[in-house]
Every structure is written in C-alpha cells, then in structure tokens.
Amino acid sequence: MPIVPQVGRRSPRARLTLGSIAVFLWIGVLLHLFPVAWMISASFKPTREIFDQPFNLIPKEPTTASYGLLANTVTPPGTDLNIDVFRYPLYTYLLNSLVLAALTVLIQVPITAMAAYAVSKLHAPRSAKLLFFFFIGTLMIPGQIAIVPRFLLLSHFPWPTRAVPDIPFTDLMFPSLSFVGTYWGVVLPAAFSAFNFLLFKGFFDTLPVDLIEAARIDGASELTTLRKIMLPLARPVIAVTTYFAFTSAWNDFLGPWIMLMTNQAKWPLSVVIYKLQFFLTSWQPSQGSMDPAAQALLSSGVGYNALMALAVVESIPMFLAFVIFREQLMKGIQIAGLKG
C-alpha cells in the first residue's frame, strides 16, 4: 500500500517526495530499456554493423536476414548447410516449449504451494523445521554433480543403477519405467521447486494465524481453509511463482537437452537457442574441430544479429506471460486498495 496517504498527496512536501521517487524510477526504466533496445536493434542489423563505432541504435541498413534464418527459409534440408537444429520448423519447438512450460506450471505450483502451506501453518514446529531443510537442502548442492545420477534414475525409474537389476534367482528384470525422450523426463524433476517453496513459505509466514483459527472455529476443513481463505489471499504470490515456474521451464536447456536429445521432435526452443548460441558465447577449445553447423554459420556470416533475433523470439512469450501475470498481481493491488 502506498506509504504517502491518498488524502495528503497534494501537499508540497508529499509532492516533492513523490516527484523525486518518480524521477528515480524513470531513470531506472531508461537503464532497463537500453538492453532491450540494443537487442531489438541488433537483430535487424547486418553482421558488419554490429560492432560499429560510434554505436547507433537505428540500423543503417536494416535487414530481416536473421529472422529469415530462424524461419528456416535459408536452409532447405539436404543442402551442404545441413544444420540439424532446423530439421523441424520453428513452431514445433515453440509448441514443445509451451507444452513443457504449461505442464511444469500445472504440476509444480499446486504441489509446492501445498507443501509450503503445510510447513508454514500446519506442521508441528519440530517437523516443520526438519521438513524445511528437507525441502530446501538440495538447493545447497550444485546441480552439476547430480546430472549423471538423475539421468540414470529417469532412464529406468526407480532404479538409479546402470541397468535394471534382475529379480533375485530369476532371469527377469524388475519392472521399470523409462522417461528418456518424453516430456515427463523433463517435467517430473521440476515437479517441486525449492525456490518457489521458499517464496510461498515466506508469503504464508506473513499471514496471521488468526485467519486460519477463525476458519477452523467455523468448522471449515483444512482443504477448505486453504482453498477459500488462503489461496484468494495468495493470488499475487501465486502469480509470481507461476511466472517464475513458467520462465524457468521456458529457459531451462540442460534438462530437456539431456533427456530429449534422441527425440528432436520434442525439443523445446531453449535447446535450439542453446545450440545456436553456444559457439558465440562459450569457450571452445581453441584447438581442434568445431560443430559443422557452427562452421556453416560462421562462413555465412551469422553472428550476434541472429543470436539477438533468437533472443527476441525467446523473450516474446516471457514478455506476454509477464503481462498476464502482472494483471493478476494488479488485481491483488486493486482488491487491497478497495479495502483501504
């Protein structure tokens, strides 16, 4: 809620305060817009203009060649420029990304919210403390070392071994499930998010216990309390966590890359972007050969412009998601505003 009261907003002092806040915020806005402007402008520049000095925001010879490359118009299959990422049309990857992000959000947000609510308000202090560390403890381990065991686990769930073991004294193997090459292999590991758990818990902690007690006295079941009282209040934080779940699923490349490598029809956009960006932004061993696709792109003069075009494409759904979830956030502001 605004700190400067609505009624006194016209007083000179309040005006000064508000005015300086506005100036500060607008400067910040300009700083933020610069990278975006750079990204969009670079995506329309020809390669030779990218590093021009002095830097100019409006391309001298605007071109859509970068977007053309992305739209699969310059690489018909079967040419020497055989870039495997373009084997499928761009919309396949976009669709996959959307499906993956939607599944992740639909599974992750409720599971995480319920757990956070239980830890914050329902569990006895001792188990709450224990569960808290159980839930966030894995954040403290860098994910890089879990890549191999996680893949083994998902490749024949629930056996985290090299191969599925035999049932003792028989030649039969234990039953197992393989998630390799399926969406589930990507979605299941993201079914619980420790980060969103922290957010939810932080939020539920700010809610007074009286609200729940009152509901209980009214005879509401725990589920009803959660549904009817907590969730409406939690609307802003649900919007935020959904947004984070969406963007992290949207941007994640290593999970999908390892799980779906053999099934290109299911690649999300992030994998394609990663494959295209890595030779621009990562350290190649200076000796030895490189990806034939990278070689092809280098020869055809593709550079930052194509990368930025990709970044623009990548950013659009995130931007839209932001606008949608902002409305949810704003609703929270409006409801609370009416109350005050």
Partner: peptide, 12 residues
C-alpha cells in the same frame, strides 16, 4: 541423433 560438438558433450 547424438550431439558431439556442443560444450556439454562431456556430460552428455
């Protein structure tokens, strides 16, 4: 399909 060229090759 198996990618041998990206920097994640060792982990892959």
């Amino acid at each position: 399909p198996f990618d041998m060229w990206s920097p994640t090759f060792p982990s892959v």
